[in-house]
Amino acid sequence: NNDALSPAIRRLLAEHNLDASAIKGTGVGGRLTREDVEKWLAKA
């Protein structure tokens, strides 16, 4: 759900042209964290 994304995470996803639904969030309530996105980028 994009409503649950912080502005910083939205920007990070946009910079790398990523789809938030492709990344499993580990934050509160399954929210994406910066670490989630960075780990996903490291694997890609």
Rank of each mutant, 00 (worst) to 15 (best):
K39V: 07
G29Y: 02
S21E: 10
G25T: 03
N1A: 12
A42Y: 07
N1K: 13
K39L: 10
L12V: 07
A8V: 12
D19K: 08
R10G: 05
N17K: 08
A8E: 15
V28F: 08
L41K: 01
D19P: 08
E38F: 14
I23P: 02
I9D: 04
W40R: 12
E15S: 08
R11K: 13
G25P: 06
V28W: 05
R11Q: 13
R31G: 06
L13R: 00
A22L: 15
G27D: 03
L41N: 01
A20T: 07
L18T: 07
R34W: 15
G27M: 03
L18V: 12
L41Q: 01
L41S: 01
D36F: 01
L18D: 02
K39F: 12
E15R: 06
A42I: 08
A22S: 13
R10I: 15
D3E: 12
R11F: 06
A4P: 14
R10F: 02
K24D: 07
S21W: 05
D19S: 09
R34E: 13
W40T: 15
L32N: 00
A20N: 04
L32M: 07
R31T: 13
E35S: 09
D19H: 08
L32Y: 03
L5F: 06
R11D: 10
A22C: 09
D19R: 07
G27W: 01
A42G: 11
E35K: 09
T33R: 05
T33V: 04
A14G: 07
A4K: 12
N1E: 14
K43N: 14
A8D: 14
L41I: 12
P7E: 15
A8P: 05
A44Y: 15
H16I: 03
L41A: 03
L5Y: 04
N1I: 13
T33H: 01
W40E: 15
R10D: 06
G25N: 02
E15Y: 10
E15A: 11
E35I: 07
D36M: 03
L41T: 02
A20K: 06
L18W: 08
H16R: 02
E15Q: 11
E38I: 13
E35F: 07
T33M: 05
D3M: 06
G29L: 07
D3W: 00
N1G: 13
N2M: 13
R10W: 01
W40I: 15
G30L: 00
A20M: 10
A4R: 13
A20D: 05
N2S: 13
D36N: 01
K43Q: 14
A20Q: 07
S6I: 06
A44T: 12
E38W: 13
K39R: 13
I9M: 09
W40Y: 15
I9L: 13
L12R: 05
P7F: 02
V37N: 00
D3A: 09
P7K: 12
D36S: 00
R34A: 12
A4H: 15
I23A: 02
N2G: 13
E38A: 06
H16V: 02
H16P: 00
K24W: 05
R11Y: 05
A20V: 13
A42W: 06
T33L: 07
E35T: 08
P7A: 12
A4F: 15
A4D: 14
R31M: 13
N2T: 13
N1P: 12
K24F: 07
A42R: 09
A22M: 15
N2K: 11
I9S: 02
V28N: 08
K39S: 12
K24Q: 13
A8Q: 11
K39N: 15
A20F: 09
A20G: 09
L18F: 10
N17L: 08
D19E: 10
K24I: 14
L41E: 03
D3S: 10
A44K: 07
L5D: 06
V37R: 00
V37A: 04
L32T: 04
A8K: 08
D19I: 09
V37K: 00
A44G: 08
R31F: 07
E38P: 02
R10T: 08
T26M: 05
A8Y: 07
V28K: 11
D19V: 09
H16L: 08
L13S: 01
K24G: 06
I23C: 03
A22G: 09
I23W: 01
N17E: 08
L18Y: 05
A22N: 12
G30H: 03
L32V: 14
K43D: 14
V37D: 00
R11M: 10
K24H: 11
S6E: 12
R10S: 08
E15H: 08
L32R: 02
A44C: 07
D36R: 00
G25L: 02
G25W: 01
G25I: 04
R10E: 10
I23F: 01
T26V: 03
D36Y: 01
A42T: 13
R34N: 11
K43M: 15
R10A: 12
N2Q: 13
T26D: 03
A42E: 15
G29E: 08
A8I: 11
G29I: 03
T33Q: 04
L13T: 00
P7S: 11
V37P: 00
N1M: 11
K24L: 11
W40M: 15
L12S: 04
K43A: 15
K39W: 12
N17G: 15
R34M: 15
A8L: 08
E38M: 14
S21I: 07
L12H: 08
L12I: 12
V28R: 10
S6T: 13
L13Y: 01
K39T: 08
A8F: 05
G30P: 01
S21H: 09
A44V: 14
K24S: 09
D36W: 02
K24Y: 05
R11V: 06
A20P: 14
G25E: 02
N2Y: 04
E35V: 07
R31K: 14
T33G: 01
A22V: 13
G29T: 04
W40P: 04
G29K: 06
L32S: 00
A14E: 15
R10M: 05
R11S: 09
A14F: 09
L41D: 01
N1R: 11
L41M: 07
K39P: 03
H16Y: 08
